[in-house]
Design a protein around this nucleic acid. Structure first.
Lengths: 153, 153
DNA sequence: CGATTAATGTTGGTGTCACCAACATAGCGA
DNA sequence: TCGCTATGTTGGTGACACCAACATTAATCG
């Protein structure tokens, strides 16, 4: 449980007006909450695992390289995370018969089930995370962040 | 240069509307830009070093434990970062005569100088980071993030 | 006062996330 | 056919955050 730090103490004015600093603090808070959530209800899964399950559920079976591209996870990290998921029987790997160097990854029924459970955990974390904001402010924040990381619109 | 990943590819809808995901993407972008900035103009210094220099410049000499509390950096990491800064003659450590277990850390003239240089680098990064937003949106984002991480107002 | 408790700086870890290099294997294109 | 590229895998690196334990020194309390 990597709980966020920086509980007390004033922050240097050099920092506390800068967007990069605020984002790093927000991320610390966010990942602290997510960490607690995964720790108590994630049964050993981490954010990489969730991302992969979500991609598989949404787009269906895919090769590992495709998964990496779609989720923004490095090929090597995909390998490791899938090995974890496979050992919990949440996904299955099979060699693509048409391209034998490729492996097709499929989410299992257990995997879907687990994904739905994680959805609930993560939705709870959203509420905690956004608690200081009103609903309108939450929508504003989400819009602004989307624009920030997705500049083409 | 830990450049941000996730260049292409759509994101699962499960993720792209959630604040925690957006914040983690924003943080990835931010720290990628900061990393590049520090790499090309930071002369080996990292964000921990900047935070410590900023705190020292703003509040004057302090003990290491105080620095840790004010900057939100763990005592052990403060020790390591100060050792780096000391080797570059940007800070000085001296034993507090009144409390011999305590060390008083002081920023040097070189340290102030370096801090001012880093300020410029970091301001440049802010502009890059916030480029997709209008000035009004930038102010909005900063306000919302401040509220998010500083709930008491 | 003496004993216990607390704070300080330090060392040496751990964990997560992101990333990179190198490799064998398998397809593809020229 | 030869070379290039894609794939999955292994085994690293680095930044950041955090924790435990320790010796030393100070503060507190019985």
């Amino acid at each position: 449980m990597p709980t966020p730090q920086h509980d007390g103490g004033r922050v240097p004015t050099r920092l506390d007006g800068r967007a990069t600093w605020l984002v790093s603090r927000a991320y610390a808070r966010s990942s602290g909450l997510l960490g607690s959530g995964f720790e108590t209800h994630g049964q050993g899964l981490r954010s990489y695992h969730y991302r992969l399950l979500a991609a598989l559920e949404e787009w269906g079976p895919a090769s590992q390289a495709d998964l990496g591209r779609k989720t923004g996870i490095d090929r090597s990290d995909v390998t490791a995370a899938l090995t974890d998921l496979e050992s919990h029987h949440l996904i299955e790997r099979s060699v693509d018969p048409a391209h034998k160097r490729r492996k097709i990854v499929t989410i299992t029924a257990d995997g879907v089930q687990r994904l739905l459970e994680l959805d609930k955990v993560i939705d709870g974390v959203q509420d905690e995370f956004l608690a200081p904001l009103t609903p309108a402010q939450r929508r504003q924040l989400i819009t602004l962040l989307s624009r920030l990381i997705n500049p083409q619109h």
